[in-house]
Design a protein around this nucleic acid. Sequence first.
DNA 1: GGGTATTGCTACGGTACAGTAGCTACGGTA
DNA 2: TACCGTAGCTACTGTACCGTAGCAATACCC
Lengths: 209, 209
Amino acid sequence: MSSGPEKTGKRPYAARMPPEERRTQVLDATLKLIAERGYEGVSMEGVARATGVTKPVVYDLFGTLADLLEALLEREEERALLQLAELMPTPRADADPEEVLVDGLNAFLRSVEARPDAWRLILTPTEAMPGRVREVVETQRTRIAAQLESIVRWGLEQLTTEIEDVELLVEAIIVMVENAARQHLEDPGRYTTERLTEFTSSLLASVKR
Amino acid sequence: MSSGPEKTGKRPYAARMPPEERRTQVLDATLKLIAERGYEGVSMEGVARATGVTKPVVYDLFGTLADLLEALLEREEERALLQLAELMPTPRADADPEEVLVDGLNAFLRSVEARPDAWRLILTPTEAMPGRVREVVETQRTRIAAQLESIVRWGLEQLTTEIEDVELLVEAIIVMVENAARQHLEDPGRYTTERLTEFTSSLLASVKR
DNA sequence: GGGTATTGCTACGGTACAGTAGCTACGGTA
DNA sequence: TACCGTAGCTACTGTACCGTAGCAATACCC
């Protein structure tokens, strides 16, 4: 292990590197920090320590903690969504709504599996996030909800159901999906992708049609 | 601008009162603080300020912040659960499982309505809580889950359904119920008790039997 | 090897909070 | 009115963090 905060000895003069490289290094360290200790444990001081440089370096690269987090979130969100798009199947027009949902969940969970730290960042309850980050995440969530809503509407049309309140249904689905992802993150051995999709599948199967 | 500690002049010597009374006063102030600004905004310093006394007073009454929070949680949990028990109907043996769940949710939401601050305390995502408090809440949650599990098992027996994974079902239900409560706390006008129970009712109605 | 832009650092001053020691003022009692 | 126990206070030490000014080391170039 070549990296890690050295104990009490004097900090060795950190290896020089071009700003862009250091930037990604700092972002990596921050992501790891948050994954390990939550948003609470994050500070410019701590980030600098974890990166193996001193504060002014971090301040020079990202003006404030908010900016740093925003940059991190942007990077991870892009990566995560991009990868999710890769895994997400594009449903044919004549597809079974049930199947679409299950496949979607499956793709999502596999994306979570592939980039757990990134998703931990996003799936952390907003109450625990610093104000600025919360906004970004909530905006994104709203956007996803809107997309999901159209799918659900289309799905409901094909069912004989008494559910009228599509808004609540969409929110309920989101909450359940996010919960599944959190469970998987917390204990992947217990909450396997298979188990979670299997459950969802049987849940949907027991809805009247 | 004008909220918070008075700027000018010395703190007036706070009215004397017996420790027990001061204790409840401190707990009240803490509850209000958390309801308004979340767990993040809580400190011994801040609690003392909000109560209108100085730190040593708080330290003398509750040794540490963790102890204070524990005391508060205990008090509020007891009050809340007690009141919930009052509102919760005791189902007859021949009751409809669907009805039992809907009535239960209804009782729960009315309890939340009656003591919003207390429930906000408990329903705040555990990630945002200080470690000690988290444990207490999670323990309680586990206990509730166990109770719910037996009800759900009984309910499933009366349905023709393919759902096998009772554990996941119970957890999903809890998540949805908690989410309903959070929605109601966040925007009671938009997420009324009626709307939420109505939705649940129709959701349950569209499950095969 | 010497010059120099650039990267990284030391060293502050400032705020907020934890936690404690020891003093002061209140107010019930004689 | 003087006493004195108790409730409350001031003032301090220590820690962790923010943010910045100005200095030092390095790597590259000739």
